[in-house]
């Protein structure tokens, strides 16, 4: 009797947790319906006019801002993460690996505001005083580049961790087969290991992108938050998550404003879900091939 009740309760809780994602989509959709019904999708997605007080909600600057910042972050993070993951998995002595892995875990645990503080104290002045003058332009330092650098450091752990798992799934005999033919280690990595691990590595990068899309506080603190489409990496930007977080105070007093912000959250959720589902499907296949 008790067993049956416990079983039912647990099933209910599990269903609740699993269906949470649908609940979130439904909740955010309901909230964003007013703005969806009064504005066309084309206007919402492709207009650069963001004037909430006049009822104009063009998301384009924010969408492009997100893309710029994420793009810069990935340009920095992907090569560094791949090199590090390959080093840790294929080259590093066990002792180095045992030291570096926990450090990367610690990096993953640092709260996003702390990254933001660091960005404001170190990255922003560096761009203002060193990078911008080097290109003979003026920048306050609060820029796409600052956001990209901070974001890159934040996605390091995600990409490295997943890539390491993927590389571990490559059977060591495949490496040995190549080494036994007299290939150098790098030749083996480049031509055999990476080729075999490619789908998984791609999935790791996509997970990193998804993480970067949604990151809020740290980016918000260093990108400048100007609702214009950036033209260079030294311009400020205004990514979607920052938009949502920054306007929570006034959103209830302006008509449709809250609805527009919830739509922004819904867009983020859907895009990130799609990215996550795609890469998790690939990773599940990789994991299966391990067994």
């Amino acid at each position: 009797m008790k067993d049956a009740i416990a079983g039912k309760t647990m099933l209910a809780l599990t269903l609740f947790a699993v269906l949470l994602v649908l609940l979130m989509i439904a909740g955010l959709y309901l909230k964003s319906r007013p703005v969806l019904s009064s504005h066309s999708l084309g206007e919402l997605f492709f207009s650069t006019r963001w004037r909430p007080f006049r009822g104009q909600f063009g998301f384009l600057p924010f969408i492009l801002g997100t893309l710029w910042v994420t793009g810069v972050a990935m340009l920095i993070a992907v090569p560094l993460c791949l090199l590090t993951a390959i080093y840790l998995s294929e080259y590093a002595p066990a002792r180095v690996r045992e030291w570096v892995k926990p450090l990367i875990d610690i990096l993953a645990g640092i709260p996003s505001v702390v990254f933001g503080v660091w960005g404001m104290l170190v990255v922003v002045p560096f761009i203002k005083d060193t990078v911008a003058p080097a290109f003979k332009v003026f920048s306050t330092g609060y820029s796409v580049l600052a956001g990209g650098i901070v974001l890159a450091i934040m996605v390091f752990p995600v990409i490295i961790h997943v890539t390491l798992e993927v590389l571990r799934a490559v059977p060591s005999e495949v490496r040995e087969a190549s080494l036994a033919l007299g290939a150098t280690r790098w030749q083996t990595v480049k031509r055999v290991v990476l080729r075999k691990a490619l789908p998984g590595v791609a999935a790791a990068v996509v997970l990193g992108i998804a993480r970067a899309f949604g990151e809020t506080m740290a980016v918000l603190m260093v990108v400048g938050n100007v609702p214009k489409v950036p033209k260079s990496v030294l311009d400020p930007a205004y990514p979607l998550p920052a938009l949502i977080a920054n306007n929570y105070g006034e959103m209830l007093s302006v008509p449709l404003y809250d609805s527009a912000l919830m739509l922004a959250a819904l867009i983020l959720l859907l895009v990130i879900l799609a990215f996550n589902v795609a890469s998790r499907l690939v990773l599940r296949r990789v994991e299966r091939s391990l067994r």
């Binding site: 955010l28 949502i244 998790r280």
Partner: peptide
């Protein structure tokens, strides 16, 4: 699978929800 995917949802979305 659902939990892995949910784990990737950013906190700002949880906040909005």
């Amino acid at each position: 699978f659902a939990f892995d995917v949910l784990n990737g949802v950013p906190s700002i979305v949880y906040g909005a929800f």
